[in-house]
Design a protein around this nucleic acid. Sequence first.
DNA 1: ATGCCGTGGAAACCACGA
Length: 258
Amino acid sequence: MRIATYNVNGVNGRLPVLLRWLKETSPDVVCLQELKSPNEKFPIQAIRDAGYNAIYHGQKSWNGVAILARGLEIKEIRRGMPGNDEDTHSRYIEAMVNGILIGCLYLPNGNPAPGPKFDYKLEWFERLIKHAAELKKLRRPVLLTGDFNVIPTDLDAKKPENWVRDALFFPESKEAYQRLLSQGWTDALRKLYPDQKIFTFWDYFRNAFARDSGIRIDHFLLNKNLEKRLIDAGVDREVRGWEKTSDHAPVWIEISDK
DNA sequence: ATGCCGTGGAAACCACGA
């Protein structure tokens, strides 16, 4: 079973790319981020025509997350990261799919840092860590995936020195990510490829993709129950080279049935 | 090193992204 995450940067503007990628790679489950669409404009019919069920938590212009599944029931558990009733951003949706609890997240960018946006990033991160601690108590397989907007280590950027003033690479961001991992989550791509420079995002400008000037910020965190089923993981890099593409590439894991 | 590009929405510019 293949589970993918893809920050589409606008689900309607990206629809041809999304549908082509779904058709070519046939992932079983897909977590989407940055829909940039209210629920009433989510392209549900095109997604269904492509063979997928979907639940989605959108909002106008910004943010927005969705979970798609091919031939599998999606049982929604929650939408929105708990712990702050004032938070209006659509950045989290959680569902049971095929016996796996899947949290699909779009962690705040946090730039410019320091500042109120960075404060919001860290506040959101603390709520994620609290919620993840609850999910860790479950005996079932659990997956947290999406755009974490964190470059975890120097290995996760082509040129780490270019990111030291960026919220994605601030010590507080890296520390929070490590603190989340230390609950007992496994970073799937790092587990399988501990020494490789693997990227999931390349800037639109400065010819970043052609120069492979990327960063790894889209992650799969697996609890122990799911980690033992991990077979493979990878990045669909070629999608980043398509016309009218997102600045992120899809990332995926392959897990055994039991 | 820099929103240099890209998206969405409102109004022919601005907010936002990483």
